[in-house]
Design a protein around this nucleic acid. Sequence first.
RNA 1: GCCGAAGUGGCGGAACUGGCAGACGCGCGCGACUCAAAAUCGCGAGGGCUUAGCGCCCGUGUGGGUUCGACUCCCACCUUCGGCACCA
Length: 819
Amino acid sequence: MSDYIPQEIEPKWQQKWEADGLYHADIDPSRPKHYALTMLPYPSGDLHIGHWYAMTPSDARARFMRMKGYNVMFPIGFDAFGLPAENAAIKDGIHPKIRTYQNIERMRKQLRSMGAMWDWRREAISSDPEYYKWTQWFFIQLFKHGLAYRKLAPVDFCPKCNTTLAREQVWGEDRHCERCGTPVIKRELEQWFFKTTAYAEDLLNYEGMDWPERVRVLQTNWIGRSEGAEVTFITEAGDPIVVFTTRPDTLWGATFMVLAPEHPLVDKLTTPEQRAEVEAYKLQAARQSDIDREAADKEKTGVFTGGYAINPVNDERIPVWIADYVLMTYGTGAIMAVPAHDERDFAFARKYGLKVVPVIQPEGEPLLNGDTMEAAYVGPGRMINSGPMDGTYVSGKGHNDPGMQKVIAWLEERGLGKKAVSYKLRDWLISRQRYWGAPIPMIFCRTCGWNPVPEADLPVLLPEDVEWRPTGESPLKLHPTWKNTTCPVCGGPAERETDTMDTFMCSSWYHLRYLSPWYHQGPFDPKEYDYWMPVDTYTGGIEHATMHLIYTRFFHKACRDMGITKGREPMIQLRNQGMVLGEDGEKMSKSRGNVVAPDDLVAKYGADTVRAYLMFFARWELGAPWSYTGIEGVARWLRRVWTIISEPAKPAICSDETKRILRRRVHQTLRRVTRDFEQFEFNTIVSSLMELLNEMSKAKEAGASGTPEWNEAVDIYLRMLAPVCPHIAEELWERTGRTYSVHTQSWPSVDEEAAREEQIVIPIQVNGKLRDRIVVSADATEEEIRAAALASEVVQKFTQGQPPKKVIIAQKKLVNVVV
RNA sequence: GCCGAAGUGGCGGAACUGGCAGACGCGCGCGACUCAAAAUCGCGAGGGCUUAGCGCCCGUGUGGGUUCGACUCCCACCUUCGGCACCA
């Protein structure tokens, strides 16, 4: 018998599996398909332990599904565009393309060392022209269907680096530049948007999706649906001001209006006397960084415009103010202020001495008085001071409330307002004033405006000879010739869009490119699509709940409506892993010096040990701190697996009892491991395998090795081990004289008869406290169990010869005697 | 402030539908092997009391409740973590 040397067997098998195409997944209509997907990695240059933690259990699950008889596709690729490569380039001058492809090369090797069942033929890299050609093509389809549009929007700008920044490059409470630490400022730029808001309602529907509740809640909050009404006020000059409110029932209590400082009607409303003050306030609000506006407990400020509007329900003349607590980006950028029933409006009214009129009276309370109220009343009650609506009961919010329905119907009849829904979700800003991304395939012509690049001319190649050092402009704009082109409509001279796309655009459809990265007639081969889609199991970090996972759902739905994809959703089942922390319990970081390097672990223990430890040491969805001593325990277990299974049998006599117990344990473990794989409970899979090995070790001591029962135990053990530790399972499979490969074997089925216990131990409680245990035959009747329990000496001691008040027999699990 | 998740030995965690709390592993202690150590193997262990015989009491963040029986269900609270944050 030789020693277990993973460093020898692992590369050997990896090469053989690859040479044999063992993990190639091809269309096979005769078998059920399973598309297993793990979130595609960014090529940062080194595979982090977090990648291992995310990917190896996904791989194990995919392998399990394969053994269960599914035709499993498990692809991999790289999210290769993006800021880190460009920032590194700015620092050390290495071209982002060179660095990215070097990193990819390195990470491919590291990914191979996992021994995962990737089908490398399906690899897709988002920065390949053959990939981003289709990213651009999708942009054009969205544009053609009115789902991509251009508008002026603020961006973060670093005055020191002289460049615009993406949201994720702005850090900390003071919102500073991630590179130089300078606080960022706002700048207005014309940019491209996707109409994610058009899908807000559809995105709230999770029907048929097996997604964690947590993610659904995060997305639901992010989309932020509120029901209410839009009501039109008219200024004294006759201009309509539309407001959105969730409380149309409080309309009679609207005693002033507030516009966002950027609201287009502000100038017109402002009287000459107020002009100077209004202008000063607008300027101050524009200069304010987001953080100032975000502080919720900040004292409210505002300025009277001098203008008035008419409250349409009672013809009251009410003043119009501007204040930065009203956001131009939500609702209509204007509100009706009901100080008696809204905390913010109340604070504002008290500060500036504005009128407070209660219109909702809580039942059974003294009548509210607008002059003496100390806080806004936001609860349910009966409408008062509300003319025709007086006496109507309203509960608060939502279209379902009958009072609310009555008010909205009344408004609609008179053309004063209408039922409306508002969302916090904003349209997706996809323009980046950056170099290392897919160029936005649009052309601007002075006479014809914006038009897409003809599809035959795709891809719009990203030029390599570009000055990427920051100047405050998009790097592509500074290229001497690149942007010059001709208008696809009139043929005259025109300019290309010089911004690039947000990389979330690339990752919104990579699961489709994996289907057929070799395909040239479209983004994917429809035959592959029809067989493999949707993704059956998607795994990745929770941090993408409100970014990638919303974008990719939007993308799929938009494509469905454009006739490109099918089905409601791209990913049916989602599971999130947690995070591996440093040994100190803190997030891993170079500065803390607590980073765990998987390459070193693989060199020391082998990939199988690393894989098994990562599945064993924590609940997958929670994660836990790393432990260098913990991994030793798993290494010890695999050495024992090796020894116990490959060590030759010693001739010995084995009792039938030993053999029976061995079979029972094997099939009981199989039952549990099967269930745990189905439920993503990887930690108990490993611990069950450890327990079974302990049982096998005892059985072997008792002479079981060499028996058919032992042979079956080894057979099932290696099949259960194969998804977790593919190399050692394959090696032992071969060494025990079995035919290649363990990974093409089917998952064993449980022999329920063998798994059945013959005798069961039943705990006996007296008054709910454990007092004794009895052993009965597994098919004992309830009466037999009762008799045995009452016959127990310990129970006798408690009953003192008296008949018990009650005897509870819980299936065959427990007896509780109540005296 | 609002929304969500989680609190179990020295540590990571286990406990299926309300039925023996602490599986498995780490660490720890004792023992075997060894000149010795490492490796390996075996045994022990939640805390406390104990007349040392078994036994008894306490114990899953805290306090209540439901139940024959609660880590599990309900109510209130505390702590930690995550998300959102003037969203009208």
